[in-house]
Amino acid sequence: MDNKCVHCGISFQIHHSGYLFVWSHEKLSSPFEKEDNECWRYEYDTIHNLENILSKLEVQFGEKCREIKCGLTRKSKKPYTTYTLKNLKARVANKELVEVIQNGELISHIQPIIDLQQANQIYGYESLLRTNQEKPVPPGMLFKAAEETGMLSLLDQRAREAAIKARKKFIKEGVKSFINFLPSTIYNPDFCLRHTFYLVDLYEINPNDLVFEVVETEKIEDIDHLKSVLSTYKREGMKVALDDVGSGFSTLETLKLLNPDYVKIDRSYVDHCDQNSEKQRFLLNVLQISRDLGIKVLAEGIERKEELEFCQSIGVDLAQGYFIGKPSNPAINGGELVGVRSLT
């Protein structure tokens, strides 16, 4: 197991009073007490005091706060689990969002995907993460907090779980489910994806109906690692997709190397594609490459009838976007999925 996995799944709790331990060869000023040659201890009686001392430590250590180890305990014994100073400070500062990431109810809103070459029939649905609480947290805010606190792996795993549960409850067999995932959170595919594969078996879902979609494809730097992740999904009988293809992405060589089942064209190339010759050339190029490799092409971000008709006319396989149907929560519609709007 990768050492980066050490915190995944471990519950994080901030006690209202307790002890902060910091491992440092540098001397820490009062109110810290020296525990041993390299460890210092601070007793706090409110979370506000803890936040203040963490802020002072961040100023003292500067960039070193990414390396300095520290931990919290209720009693004066050293903690079993440690974090970087930067990470711990972020967790304390974002304690409400940390609680949502760990224990909040996560659900999936579902957006339709149509087959452009089959009379615009429903082909599948993309699952999009949402929080189910009185004051919903925007997904972008939740993922930003997860990144800052080192909890992306946990949030990504819980998001996949919510999508699989929604699939079981609302989507019939034979219709695809597109489920997002962040490859950067999967350090060891065989180990990190074990929980996901367990859920697929538990809910008796046909693996062939699942399409796991790489989020932010253009930011991928370790192609070999991504290839390993996609191969692990495929080995289990599932399909894989690359998202946002075209946004700084090496289309030809990378598609050949990764060999996904689907590519989703970045919405910036779909927006007003019916009026832009440069975007049209790009779409035709991706289509040709994808046909040669046996990959289905999906145009996302369709917001106008003219965009849909152009993509259909050049042979794009699939499409999604607000013009086709917005994401919705089937749980509040009596379990009914929102159908595709009239496209005529």
Rank of each mutant, 00 (worst) to 15 (best):
Y80K: 14
S250P: 11
S29Q: 15
S228Q: 14
F170T: 14
T196Y: 03
I186P: 01
G174K: 09
F32R: 09
E278V: 15
Y322R: 08
I122M: 05
L337P: 11
S268A: 13
C192I: 03
I47Q: 07
H225Q: 15
L337W: 04
V245G: 13
R91M: 10
L252W: 12
T149I: 09
V240E: 01
V263R: 00
D266P: 12
F12D: 00
R66L: 09
S29V: 10
F61R: 00
D222V: 08
D271W: 13
I289N: 13
H25N: 13
S24T: 00
A162H: 11
S231P: 12
P139W: 04
L226M: 11
T196R: 03
Q275L: 14
N333T: 04
E43C: 13
A146T: 05
Q320P: 03
I265G: 07
F61K: 00
P330Y: 01
F143N: 04
T254F: 08
D317V: 01
Q118A: 13
V240N: 03
V175H: 05
V200C: 05
A93T: 11
Y44F: 06
V6E: 06
Y322F: 15
G325T: 04
T251Y: 10
R74W: 11
E253R: 14
G321T: 09
F32T: 07
F181S: 06
K135H: 10
N120R: 11
G71H: 07
R66N: 12
G124A: 00
F249V: 14
I324C: 02
S313R: 08
R66F: 04
T251A: 15
E26Y: 02
L287W: 03
L28Y: 06
